[in-house]
Structures are given as C-alpha cells and as structure tokens.
Simulated assay, not measured.
Amino acid sequence: DDDETNIRAALTARRLNPRLRLVLRLYNRRLGQHIEELLDQASAVASGTGPGHAGLDASTTVLSDADTAAPALAATALVGTSKVVQTEGLVLRAVERQPPLPGEVADPGLCTLALLSATSNDPAGADGSEGSGEQGPRLLPDEAAVASATGRGTVVLEQVSYSGPSLPSGRGGVPPFASLFSRRLRWSLAGLVGCVLALAVALMVVTGQHPLYATYVTLLDLFGINDPAYHASTGRQILQLLSGLIGLLLLPVLLAAVLEALGTFRSASALRKPPRGLGGHVVLLGLGKIGTRVLTRLRELHIPVVCVESDPEARGLATARRLRVPVVLGDVTQEGVLEAAKIHRASALLALTSADTTNLEASLYARSV
C-alpha cells in the first residue's frame, strides 16, 4: 500500500534482473508515468540494447487502484457480472451458441473457446462428433476442428455493448432554445404575442387598413413611438391606449427573458441536470478517484450516466462537466437526492463513495425505490 516501498522494490528488481517484467501499483499516477519510463530505460541500458529492442521483453506497467477497479465496475454495470474479458476498449464474455440450422452460415465469432457435444444427452457426441470419442466439451480447439465439427455447438467470446437509450450530446455546448426560458416565461411571451395579434386584427376591423399595416401601427403603439390619435375615432383611441398598456407589460417580461437566458448560458458551463424522461441509465454515487475513472469508462462505452456527489469540490466534477454528464449535488442519504437522479428509471446503481455506510444506505434505499 506504500508507493515508496513499491518503487524501491521495482528499482532493486530491475537492477538484479534487467529482463524482468515489472507491474507496480502506485497511487500517484503522474509519478507512475515517470517511473515507468525510467525503469524501461534502465532495462535497455543494463541489457546493452536500445529502447524498443525486439528481443527484449522487460516491460514496465504502472497501475493504480482505479486502473484495476474501474474496468470491472464498469463491466458489472453493463452486463451485471465482472466475469468478462476487456481488451482494446471491448467488453467480451463467453456465451454458448447452438449449431446452425441446415442452410445457415455459422458465425465464426471472435474466438472459439470450446466445442460442445453434438447432443446435450450424449456427452460423447455421437451425432456429428465424427468419431472423436472425446468425453464432454473440447476446450480451445483449433480452426480445423471448429470447421469440421458442423453439428456441434460452440462456446465463443461475444462482444457486449450497450443498446439502451443514450443521452443527447448537444451541439457545441449551446443549450437548446427551449431550455433558455422557463415554462412560465414561455407562456407569458405567448400571451403577449397573442395580445398583439388580437390588437392588430381589431385595428384592421375598426380602420379597414391592410393587415400588415395594421400590425405595423400596433407595434408602433406598443413601443410608444407613434403619434397620439387625437382626431381619430373612439375605437382607434381605445386600441392605442390598450397597445400602450400591453407595451408596459412587455418590458418586465423582456427583462426576465434576458436575465433567464443569461443564467442558462452561465449554467451551461457548469453542471447539467438530468433530462426529463431519462431512463435505462446508470446512477453513479461518488466522483472520487475510482468514481471518476468509472465515469470515463462508462462514457467510452456510450452508456448514459447520472452522477451524485456531495462535495462541490470533488475531483471528478471537472470530468463530468467536460463529458457533459448530469450531476446531482447532495447527500445520497438524504431523501429526494436519488429521486432527482431518476433512480426509479435507472438500470444500475454504482455506489462508489469512500464511506461503506453511505454506500450501504444508498443501496438499500435505492432497492426500496
């Protein structure tokens, strides 16, 4: 558990055996990168070869606790088990495939792990085993054996991917127009637009003017830049007074719209809130060291995530903001926090805080919900 002890052991081991393959656990990731380069250079110098020598297999790999825990946690959230193989960004698991029907083309899969018996009740494989006489499945067969065993099922590695709904990515960090204004403000603006149209229609009926001209005059009255209708008809004067009154009501609505839009743009660079109707996502509790790595891995797999964090200065909030992941700030043990993360429509919960009791309480409460 001590970085210094691990570094001393690695340096000593490299000195005693330059061709040794080293794997270190270091908490400090930046220091680990420098140590990795240093030990690789020491191996090359001690062996009398340059870096990247083809005949030298003395690699150095530095991992942290998060490097080893995050892939298993992310895979468990995806497939419900940590018994998977992960390589080059892929998540693979072993599945059993039945032999193809006559006329179908067999899918070779990524890798065949075993050839099954031809029939489930005949472990010797009487049908289609071609007289092999083997008992039970044949593990790790070669390509020729797989091609010749046409009547037998196989156990293959299958890629696992997320097929549920995905979070909207947005465009360039600009919030959509509907999110700029609240529902109440949008109804206010719609009501004012309706009043303007009604006044324009009334003016057209009273004066007999063209609809476009009547709308233009109504807007002039609305903004108070038209001449008073001293010698006009009574209906025209009433309409002008109503237009001026509505113009007074328009000013606070426009001011509220500007302030609300500025607040929305300001919060666009901050933390996002879970969108309405979100479902099938993963709720991630805790954005510490391991939680941040798990979040990054889940987003690489294109899995929608909603994070819950009680510390507004947590190290993972910057990553969540960069990945545009919704975050709920609050204590998960308090009522309403998990509800804000849409836990009732989530597919998985990852409780990764540093407190065991917090993880336990959050898990029990989420199960009850």
Results as ranks from 00 to 15, higher is better:
residue 87 T to V: 14
residue 105 V to I: 15
residue 241 L to W: 06
residue 122 D to L: 03
residue 122 D to H: 08
residue 139 L to G: 09
residue 294 V to D: 07
residue 63 L to F: 04
residue 62 V to A: 09
residue 263 G to M: 14
residue 252 P to E: 04
residue 267 S to L: 15
residue 38 L to T: 14
residue 227 D to V: 06
residue 155 V to G: 00
residue 320 A to F: 02
residue 54 A to Q: 12
residue 131 G to H: 05
residue 351 A to R: 12
residue 315 R to N: 15
residue 230 Y to A: 10
residue 132 S to W: 06
residue 230 Y to I: 05
residue 295 L to K: 06
residue 358 T to E: 13
residue 161 S to W: 12
residue 274 P to M: 05
residue 130 E to G: 04
residue 127 D to G: 01
residue 172 G to W: 06
residue 134 E to W: 06
residue 95 V to D: 06
residue 312 P to H: 10
residue 65 D to Q: 12
residue 202 A to M: 00
residue 311 D to A: 06
residue 177 F to Y: 06
residue 193 V to F: 06
residue 53 H to T: 09
residue 187 W to N: 13
residue 211 P to T: 14
residue 253 V to D: 00
residue 65 D to G: 14
residue 228 P to M: 01
residue 10 A to S: 09
residue 366 A to Y: 11
residue 102 P to Q: 01
residue 197 L to F: 02
residue 194 G to C: 07
residue 140 L to R: 12
residue 199 L to Y: 02
residue 303 I to R: 00
residue 301 L to T: 07
residue 134 E to S: 08
residue 344 H to W: 13
residue 4 E to T: 08
residue 319 T to Q: 12
residue 225 I to F: 10
residue 265 F to V: 14
residue 298 L to Y: 02
residue 196 V to A: 07
residue 291 G to Y: 11
residue 340 A to E: 10
residue 268 A to Y: 01
residue 152 R to A: 02
residue 297 R to I: 11
residue 173 G to V: 00
residue 316 G to H: 09
residue 259 L to P: 11
residue 35 I to K: 02
residue 119 T to L: 12
residue 273 K to W: 12
residue 149 A to P: 09
residue 47 S to L: 14
residue 342 K to L: 11
residue 84 V to W: 07
residue 172 G to F: 10
residue 205 V to W: 01
residue 344 H to Y: 14
residue 160 V to F: 02
residue 272 R to L: 14
residue 164 G to M: 15
residue 5 T to D: 10
residue 201 V to A: 03
